[in-house]
């Protein structure tokens, strides 16, 4: 699964065969196609960009044009084994409410996001005094879709406060794993598997 983005590869490696999956912010359906073709997953997608939706549907995937904040409320409780939100949490108006919806719709949820406490980000802000532009945060502050930057420790704190269980966590620097202890400093991005 090396053709997938590293966080997606982690998710694909940890989804059960034949599961029902909702990929929120599925892009052009790259992860969904892998899950369907290699694991026989019943995958559904939600994507905001119409061109991406068209590409995904043209691949034979079931994808709905919509956005997480407006449209997740329409899905019934427990309708999926997994709800996936990859690199999208930090773009939402209310990440906490989106997280609640994910865990209502899916029995479990995969959430991945870029870590705003990675040392490069810290250095950039500390020494440069400027909003960081890095490999995972490539867009300048005025046009970035990332309106709620979050660190791994911030996210852990939110999970604790809301009583959400962590079933798995992967911390990545590029496609290399980092330990949980050093993650907030060393990981560029994180993938969590969560459960209510």
């Amino acid at each position: 699964m090396s053709d997938l983005r590293p966080d997606l590869a982690v998710i694909a490696a940890n989804v059960a065969q034949g599961a029902r999956v909702l990929d929120v912010g599925c892009g052009d359906g790259a992860l969904m196609a892998v899950l369907r073709d290699r694991l026989g997953v019943d995958a559904r997608g939600l994507e905001i960009d119409p061109e991406n939706v068209s590409s995904a549907v043209a691949r034979g995937l079931s994808v709905i044009q919509g956005n997480a904040e407006a449209d997740l409320v329409d899905y019934p409780d427990d309708s999926f084994d997994y709800a996936i939100l990859s690199q999208t949490l930090q773009t939402t108006m209310r990440p906490d409410l989106v997280l609640e919806q994910l865990l209502r719709i899916g029995r479990q949820a995969f959430v991945s996001f870029p870590n705003f406490a990675h040392w490069r980000v810290r250095l950039s802000l500390l020494w440069g005094g400027r909003m960081p532009v890095t490999r995972l945060l490539p867009v300048a502050w005025y046009e970035t879709p990332n309106i709620h930057h979050v660190t791994i420790d911030d996210f852990r704190a939110l999970l604790k406060e809301r009583g959400i269980t962590v079933e798995g966590a992967w911390f990545l620097n590029g496609d290399k794993a980092t330990t949980a202890a050093a993650a907030n400093f060393r990981a560029e991005h994180a993938v969590f598997l969560l459960q209510r």
Binding site: D42, P50, V53, L61, S62, I64, G66, D74, Y75, S79
Partner: peptide, 17 residues
């Protein structure tokens, strides 16, 4: 689409310009 989701049907939807 909302109703089809509620019914668990595989559904795609896109609004074209």
């Amino acid at each position: 689409v909302h109703a089809l989701n509620a019914a668990g049907a595989p559904v795609s939807f896109v609004e074209l310009k």
